[in-house]
Design a protein around this nucleic acid. Sequence first.
DNA 1: CGTTTCATGTAACGTTCGTTACATGCAAAA
DNA 2: TTTTGCATGTAACGAACGTTACATGAAACG
Lengths: 189, 189
Amino acid sequence: MQNRKDELIESLIAYLLENGLADLSLRPLAAGTGTSARLLIYHFGSKEDLLTEVLEAMQAHVRRSFAQLLEKPSTARSSKPPLKLLWNWAIADENYLYLKLLYELQILAIQNPDTYAQYLGRNTDNWLDLALTALSPSLRTPAMATLCAAVFDGLFIELMSSGDRKRTTQALDCFIQMATETLASLSKA
Amino acid sequence: MQNRKDELIESLIAYLLENGLADLSLRPLAAGTGTSARLLIYHFGSKEDLLTEVLEAMQAHVRRSFAQLLEKPSTARSSKPPLKLLWNWAIADENYLYLKLLYELQILAIQNPDTYAQYLGRNTDNWLDLALTALSPSLRTPAMATLCAAVFDGLFIELMSSGDRKRTTQALDCFIQMATETLASLSKA
DNA sequence: CGTTTCATGTAACGTTCGTTACATGCAAAA
DNA sequence: TTTTGCATGTAACGAACGTTACATGAAACG
């Protein structure tokens, strides 16, 4: 029954959000989600297919949450710069662990593409680029888009290791201020 | 004999540079370095101790290479901004794979600290901060230091996933230009 | 020369891995 | 009521894991 499987997927995502992807094995995973390795294989066919379904569901969750951000009335978000909006969305409690897991997946895929790259959804490598261009169509040069994405990535990773939301958010504000000033002086000239 | 061990460490580092840390196991590691699992345990005592020694040697290599950069006569480097200097050092062939491995270790330590955090040298979490302040003592606010480190981290990770040295380097130049202009306008006021 | 010490090979240990065989309960269908 | 099919438990498979026991060659030392 698809119903049972969907329940399982929810539990499995919750487990992954807490325990990460590296060194994952079926029996602890099953024990941590109140089922058995036998049942996981029964429902998903193999560990590989399980990860395919669960990680796709996880990424769909992220896409859905991001779509909600885009659908908010623009009056609620036009006051803040797009990068700031994206940052606030990313560090919100309901998104933070998901993004943390997504980042772990992407980084594992860099060193072990044979094992992990298959789990990356079609557009996850550049979802950040897509997000930025969706929020800020004025960002036209690839270098600037790459820079903004890198600032976001770098600060999010720093947040993950240090847990210091205050300092990382200040650093982002710092960047936004620099970018705003640069843009202003460019339009003056 | 320490001699034999040092030879082994060199081979083991080479293996890790190519194959990464995740899903590492003794027998493939031994086969890939021309020895046997038996010998690795004999020389290092355990897999954990082996990783401790090998990863410490790897990080020592990075520190040594970075020290060389600092020791260059300042005439050879004063013309370029510190962040650019650091970037060129990091993407140089003799350093790139080492930093890639170091980044993988740091990110594994985020999600699985029990397994991987022990391999992080005393100061590796903030070696980048140290590097930046060593190269650019004018960077005084923690927010700006965090931002510069994040730009470096983010662009390096983007380089690792895309392999696009040109675009990532352009993005860094973009950031440096913004920072230079901001600094100039601040000193004017 | 004999002894000791280091380095290595072979084989196995016990555990965990992903996976499967087989039996069974249980609910819906006939 | 009987049958069918999904969901689950128990137990095990073969492979790989980190590690160890034991034997042995080679080399240094007395």
